[in-house]
Design a protein around this nucleic acid. Structure first.
Lengths: 339, 339
DNA sequence: CTGAAAGCGCTTACAG
DNA sequence: CTGAAAGCGCTTACAG
């Protein structure tokens, strides 16, 4: 914790340790060319002097930084936090830094954020469920390695890791069918350009059809409550209610508890993401679990591989698809289903 | 959108524009010493060539970066997103970049994150409701300008911007008293070292006492449901239920809707942060609103001022305290109160 | 195993 | 209003 007035440089360390400047660099970067004892002494000197590498200088000399940029669409989904943590661990394991940028629905803001990441010459960019059009993603991919999480690769040289939406839909529909439901209702956000919403809906449609269930769809805004009410209003038979994610699904819970509003209708509630909200006792949501850790480590690996390859444009896009799991909780347990 | 194989440098721009290298730098940085026409031509060349400043080189030459680091404790509170957005705008307005780090409850992770921010030689650090002990904050403040949001300055050379907790407590208690409540219940997270929790509780205690109301306190874990149930169990009179933040308060809503569980008890529910969760139709929470925009712009201003002053240790800590507001919604409206 | 030297891309006095 | 030159702190062949 030795603090100096000004920044300590490798020069200072070299002088105090009585070695050359380059040796300090080599030692601090773990080069095997440095004698163990020398390395130890240098490391010790660095610590007591309070030396901290100047990332700007290192990046400049190395012609590349040691940081990865993460672009999150917003902070309104706990799933993003889990992703951020996993990525933090995955990058940390490779001794890389992770810089997060909180996206925005304002294009200029997002653009500015990506630009500052590019100015830093990040190794690569990880975008979680971006709402950008395919061509923009491809364009960014021309400049720097890019890996998408939760969205199919748009082509170009952009990689992607995501969960198999069709498999998730089958899990959900299968579960509801087992509960005796004959019809499924899906509530998703009304968002322009939301590929994730679109993919999810068609996967559900497909799965429902295959299982011989009907599918009814409603769009909602920030609040899923009205859409859920609306869907229940016209109902007289049991319903499997699928909501786009946990954060929207919790809107449905209070609605379902108003037992007087829809007498006699059994409703099983299920959603996606399996975040801490789903686990909260009051909600206990049955939810599709995405393997965040695998998503995260894979994304980092793909990015680093692509960075190694040198030119960004090298190699065709890789699209890693993972299997989801269904976590069953109270919201769809027969004996606890509201009605 | 001109993309080149390798990075375009100021050298390239200078060559193409037919000027010297330094002139390019001056022009691009908006120096008034450059003729308007020259500046225009240079800017144009830079654009067509797809020039993008190398932040590492610029930081190194300038001996300081143009980025501010934001350390968020987690992503489980929409309030943090609003803060992040405001800060993004505030830094953008000053042509600074904002790098976010998602904290963690694991000290090593947080430490590593702060370290990478420091390696980048950020202008300063903004920490939102950090759980770090005072001495750690002061230590960080020795190395770089630091501004806290939502926590009192621990002294040293650390600044702070926050909302007046006592005023917030008075607003809440006053509102509940007006509704005819005689007793107040507070549910807060069971967290070690959580100053915010502690300050909030004592402010409430003080306000309740002053207003002649009783205060009952319960701790909760991730899920506030059990604590709320517990608090209601022993009740036979109207209760003003104050919950530490919106995200915890939504747990209370389903509990309160179970009309059969606590017959005859009027409960008015209020919380803090006034995030989008509070606004969601199904929850409609009365909540304390913090002026995020003022918090954000003030934090950035304090940081920049301290950075200007040169030495970090210069100047005593500034502690800006803002007035909160109470937004009244259905959860505490007499006619909609559950019971 | 160790050192002298060049260079990364930019900024900034300084001289014209 | 413009250019030549030094230097920011580090990394990395290269030579010993």
């Amino acid at each position: 914790m030795a603090t100096s007035g000004q920044d300590v440089t490798q020069d200072d360390v070299a002088r105090v340790a009585g070695v050359s400047r380059s040796l300090v660099s080599l030692a601090l970067n773990g080069s095997p060319k440095v004698a163990a004892e020398t390395r130890r002494r240098i490391a010790e000197t660095a610590t007591t002097l309070g030396y901290r590498v100047n990332a700007a200088a290192a990046s400049l000399a190395r012609q590349r930084s040691r940081t990865i940029g993460l672009v999150l669409p917003n902070l309104r989904n706990a799933f993003f936090e889990q992703i951020a943590h996993t990525l933090g661990d995955a990058t940390g394991a490779r001794d890389l830094a992770l810089f997060v940028t909180v996206g925005s629905d304002r294009p200029e803001v997002l653009h500015r954020a990506v630009e500052s990441l590019l100015s830093v010459r990040v190794i690569g960019l990880i975008l979680v469920s971006p709402w950008l059009p395919d061509e923009d993603l491809i364009a960014i991919g021309e400049e720097v390695p890019v890996c998408l999480i939760g969205r199919r690769s748009p082509g170009g040289s952009v990689d992607s890791v995501r969960v198999d939406e069709e498999a998730a839909a089958r899990l959900l529909v299968g579960h509801l069918a087992e509960l005796g439901m004959r019809s499924v209702g899906y509530v998703g956000p009304r968002v322009v350009n939301d590929t994730s919403r679109f993919e999810r809906e068609s996967a559900l449609r497909f799965a429902a059809q295959a299982a011989g269930l009907t599918l009814d769809v409603r769009e909602c805004d920030e609040d899923a409550g009205p859409a859920v009410r609306d869907m229940l209003r016209s109902r007289h038979e049991p319903l499997g209610l699928v909501i786009h994610n946990d954060i929207l699904a919790i809107d449905a819970v209070p609605v379902l508890r108003e037992t007087d509003r829809h007498p006699g209708i059994d409703v099983a509630l299920v959603s996606y993401d399996n975040t801490y909200l789903a686990r909260r006792g009051e909600f206990s949501l049955t939810s599709i679990d995405q393997p965040e850790d695998v998503l995260g480590t894979t994304a980092v690996r793909l990015l680093c591989e692509r960075a190694e390859e040198g030119t960004t444009s090298a190699g065709s896009p890789r699209d890693v698809v993972l299997e989801p799991a269904l976590v069953i909780r109270g919201s769809s347990e027969p004996d606890r289903v509201c009605g």
